[in-house]
């Protein structure tokens, strides 16, 4: 498995873990987003850095090598795909806000879209790295 694919798997799993925990706190347990946001951001940053360090220690040569031309194409295509996921979520959130005037719902929808968009990007990277590009 290529280093970039391992990295996408690890980052995706990290985001599922942290994002799932955040959504459970906010939507499941009713914790205010203002209280849950800081642990979410800190958890995401710390776990991401820790995961990248473990990956780099496991494959130091691959980790230090720059992105090559095929990986660059994959990264650009995956980012393009994920931008549609994010944009769809933002439009849905804005539509919901127009109808309900509920700012907190807008916040939840946009943040969930951000998480889903990032997951879509990692998923697309994994798919494209295994496909014909």
């Amino acid at each position: 498995m290529a280093f970039r694919e391992r990295s996408a798997w690890v980052m995706g799993c990290t985001l599922v873990l942290v994002g799932g925990f955040y959504l459970k706190l906010v939507i499941g347990d009713g914790v205010p987003p203002s209280s849950a946001a800081i642990p979410f951001v800190l958890g995401a940053v710390v776990l991401s850095i820790a995961a990248q360090i473990v990956l780099a220690v496991a494959s130091p040569r691959e980790a230090s090598s720059p992105v090559d031309e095929r990986e660059r194409v994959v990264i650009e295509k995956a980012a393009h795909f994920s931008s549609y996921v994010l944009a769809t979520g933002v439009v849905v959130g804005l539509g919901a806000f127009m109808l309900s005037q509920d700012g907190m719902r807008l916040f939840h929808i946009v943040l969930t879209s951000l998480i889903l968009g990032q997951l879509a990007e990692y998923g697309a990277q994994i798919f494209l790295l295994r496909s014909r590009v």
Binding site: A2, F3, E62, S65, D68, E69, R70, E71, L129, S131, R132, V133
Partner: peptide, 19 residues
Amino acid sequence: VGVTRHTIIAIEQARYSPS
């Protein structure tokens, strides 16, 4: 040539057309 081993494999398997 400045690419990863996986990119060479993709070129060999006709999954990527190099620059």
